[in-house]
Write a protein that binds this DNA or RNA. Structure first.
Lengths: 225, 225
DNA sequence: TCACTTTTTAACATAAACTTAACGAAAGGT
DNA sequence: ACCTTTCGTTAAGTTTATGTTAAAAAGTGA
């Protein structure tokens, strides 16, 4: 497998846990930074742009939830976040930390194997999305909902953006109408047959006709030029 | 966030289990389709080509074993399959479901963690094998719905693609007209006698006459060159 | 609320894919 | 060889999927 040696930021106030997890993650080949508190965490996050952040939500001073929010919102940083939960927290969906934008959670006591599998899974997920920064003809800025096409920035409405983002996430891959429907509109959406077409049309109006190709009977595909 | 991860088809007659597992799998970033019975399952499998199928072998109407066989044999679909076993089935190797081509099993009651780890492991395995690059003269890219013949990419209409895909899936194997009809056109299609021939012709036009051979009185076969 | 943008619907046009029909050619059996 | 069956080929006919347009509906923010 090809690895680019991901950087992980580990944040907890307990030094033991920090060392324990750090050891396990390093053993997997990751580069690991540790922080004892939120302030330090933010400093490191800013400086080293880790691929992934693992946070304890129960920390003194500035707690994990806040850190999560700051990194997510204020710093415009995309790193996925895993949070720890104490064992008493049974219902994770209730936990505020999750709503603050964590991508996954793990309960204490922490089993390193599980943590590592979560880490891998998250990184894989993000890795697959990331490469859509094709330096070719189109550039997608997920944060700002802006698409740069031939240098000119385009601000797209949400649905159009999501549609294009999906198609462009795997250039060449044909997405079926069903897939598009499920992913962009959601499983339960009930919209008419022509809705997708109309959005495709809008995109073609703005990008030109050369990017999105129809595969009749199947769906659409995005082609770099 | 928009994901392009693996698609999983979940089949069980108990709505509760369906929802429970669906929730857990979605949380891992998978796209999940669900079906309450075998017929629905087959329909979805055909349509959405899931990366993985999770089946309950104990279902009314058409049971899991049959579904497994149909997907495996008749539909020429390669998705790995995980089956559930009821708790009383201690010795899974005895279970027919396994012989029908399941790749793994899991016993009830189902622990989501375990299921997910099995899912990940199977998908990893298949991902690495999958590049179903028939390293001969023709390459079929299911994802892109493109066929590369002698280096030139060909975009085929749906029926032609499906027909070629079927034939090329087992080079040398002779598919009867009935089989072709059933798989490519579906069980209920009522089309004339010459329809298959015409599509074969279209393919020969595009690929040359050397790939598809007629076995008179039986059907057609695909030969690598 | 109003003005504005975005999303969806509906109706119709268009083009592509698919099927049929008719006939010719080849293969197989007697 | 002859007859029968099966397959090949073509062009025309039909169906279906998608394109297009405008307008209605639903959101959004001042």
């Amino acid at each position: 497998m090809i690895e680019t040696k991901h950087t992980i930021l580990l944040v907890d106030d307990e030094q033991d846990i920090l060392e324990f997890l750090s050891y396990n993650l390093k053993k997997e080949g990751y580069r690991v930074f540790t922080a004892n508190n939120g302030v330090e965490a933010i400093k490191i996050a800013k400086k080293n742009q880790p691929s992934l952040i693992i946070l304890d939500v129960m920390m003194p001073q500035m707690d994990g939830i806040e850190v999560c929010q700051i990194i997510r919102n204020d710093m415009q940083q995309n790193s996925p976040v895993i949070t720890f939960l104490t064992s008493r927290a049974e219902d994770y969906s209730q936990i505020a930390g999750f709503e603050a934008g964590a991508d996954d959670y793990i309960s204490k006591p922490i089993r390193p194997r599980l943590l590592i599998s979560k880490v891998e899974s998250l990184l894989r997920r993000y890795d697959h999305n990331e490469p859509s920064v094709n330096e070719s003809t189109i550039r997608i800025d997920r944060e700002k909902f802006i698409i740069h096409s031939k240098g000119i920035p385009l601000i797209l409405p949400k649905k159009e953006f999501e549609l294009l983002e999906l198609l462009a996430s795997k250039p060449g891959k044909v997405f079926t109408r069903d897939q598009i429907m499920n992913i962009v509109w959601g499983d339960h959406a009930i919209v008419g047959e022509r809705t997708i077409d109309v959005h495709i049309r809008k995109l073609r109006e703005k990008l030109g006709n050369d990017y999105i190709r129809t595969i009749k009977g199947i769906g659409y595909t995005f082609n770099e030029i």
